[in-house]
Design a protein around this nucleic acid. Sequence first.
DNA 1: TTGTACGCGTTATCAT
DNA 2: ATGATAACGCGTACAA
Lengths: 340, 340
Amino acid sequence: MESSNKDQLKENLTIHDVAKALGVSASTVSRAISGKGRIGEETRQRVLAYISEKSFYPNASARSLAQSKTYNIAIIMPEVKDLVDMPFFHTCMHGAEEVAQVNDYDLLIVTTDGTNIKPLERMVNNRKVDGMILTRLYKDDVFVKYLKSTEIPFVAIGNSDDKDLVTIDHDNYGGCRELVSLLLSKGVEKVAYLGGGMDQTVNIRRFAGYKDGLENAGVKLDNGIIYTNLANKIQVAKAVEELLKTNTDCILCQDDYICDEVVHHLAEKGISIPKRMKVASCHHSKLLDNFPVTITSLKFDTMEIGRKACQVLLSMIAGDEVPKETLLEYEINLKESTKM
Amino acid sequence: MESSNKDQLKENLTIHDVAKALGVSASTVSRAISGKGRIGEETRQRVLAYISEKSFYPNASARSLAQSKTYNIAIIMPEVKDLVDMPFFHTCMHGAEEVAQVNDYDLLIVTTDGTNIKPLERMVNNRKVDGMILTRLYKDDVFVKYLKSTEIPFVAIGNSDDKDLVTIDHDNYGGCRELVSLLLSKGVEKVAYLGGGMDQTVNIRRFAGYKDGLENAGVKLDNGIIYTNLANKIQVAKAVEELLKTNTDCILCQDDYICDEVVHHLAEKGISIPKRMKVASCHHSKLLDNFPVTITSLKFDTMEIGRKACQVLLSMIAGDEVPKETLLEYEINLKESTKM
DNA sequence: TTGTACGCGTTATCAT
DNA sequence: ATGATAACGCGTACAA
């Protein structure tokens, strides 16, 4: 009674206000909300009904302080240069967020180039997050190195030789290997490989799949038709040009970006796909949908990788044991571009 | 001395630890860090030196609780369906994050369709953020309606008739108007308009610019060559088909997505750009770079819009007065596709 | 200029 | 099953 007008004026209720109004103690209210500790079913319902009616919501900062838990996770995104990489990272992010939301976690985003760890340090030092997702792995990754020096749980999307890293990835190796095997078994003779920067582990894995796919079929590697570290469209075009002088009858592209250029360049030269040259891509995105000819490719569920990464991270935060490596399914879509 | 080993064991220092080690009080340390309140320059330096050496960082949750401030802002992103919208929102996000980082704020991401306000409610109710950025405005926007009912500061990217909304936008209206004027002054006769959903204010503004651009030049509106609410590629193709039967000599596309389809369709039909038909787009992204013919378009600095949105929001959070409407510059790029 | 003491809103420990 | 009470770590009036 004596404090009723005070309660009216406050715009944000606290558990103490709730407790007073209900004639119980603050701890009882806390227990009713959290579900932890013993509490009578009747009082529990009474509290729940009241806070629902009055729209009471616990203050996240206070909870955070008391529990040493932020209910935030960070996702580290690369600075995306080209249109082709963007969908992957953005969709990953979306998937991670979906899982975070369901678990009452929020997703905090950090964009950095591959070298600057300052933003991470700030987050860790200030304890703004409970864990982190790395969306890209680099060789001698400075983020990994830093995060390992801290106690904070983290997962990385991608593949690594470092066996005590928790990673989530599509099975790029297995996918590429099976794709190459399939192409060869269908009668393709010479499969060339066009790839970008070998500083990214995903590219290393794809190339390894290509190599072992050939090997499995008893085909010898021909370094003359293998191009890696292609950095731009001009280099890709030049590589295609050179391949056309060989007996190559199929080009395996490391990703959509390269595939895009290959298809455009062949079209410009009036070279028929698949008659004169077959084309396949190790990654499928909507980019490939715009071509006159449908492209054989590996298809991965990008959103799923984000979801999985978040799930695994939340398990780690909860203190559960998690597998070091999670490999997600791939799908091989055989299309016109490799028709024999 | 008596507490030295306790200090060693703790992995996270507090201002009390720092205070004790330096023989000062906790409030002095607090003042040294925040810069608020009077403090001797010498002690200030002594504290700063110590915390730098010992790598002390204030606990964000505790600070948040004490100040009723989270140092977080949220950015509300739409569920992006197609490749064409993604760069805009992603780049906006990146711009916002850049400014946030510099101001020691973190960016929290929320993806929703245009209807579900649950994720926003949770954030606001739990006081996890100090403000919000809406990246898209809808007609009868439920987010706007909800946020207005709260006390939380927010800005919206886009344009609205609601004059007490704080908005940031490119000058879509002015840009389109000038583009149309320019085309007409160059000798184009009939400018058709191909647009998508008129439930988005950006589309409404662009169309208004088109209309007034014609009007300014004394050209009468011809509803027969205006298509809005085109929902997919098939509808765009059909519209182009119909336009080819009229005396239209220029197609103004509301965005890249539509422009993409228009260019492809004209190419398929073997119709020359710009000889038989000129084409321009109200928005430029890298998508347009892939065409054999360069496209006349409006160019906006997308990252800048994200930056600006964040700047304005931070000003609001700081309690400063901000302009209700911020319009960002556009650039008209005249290219081959409209050459006379 | 500096220190004291209390508040921020919750959770957790220990009684009862 | 429930209630006091003490943390959690920082900011800040107020006092000195």
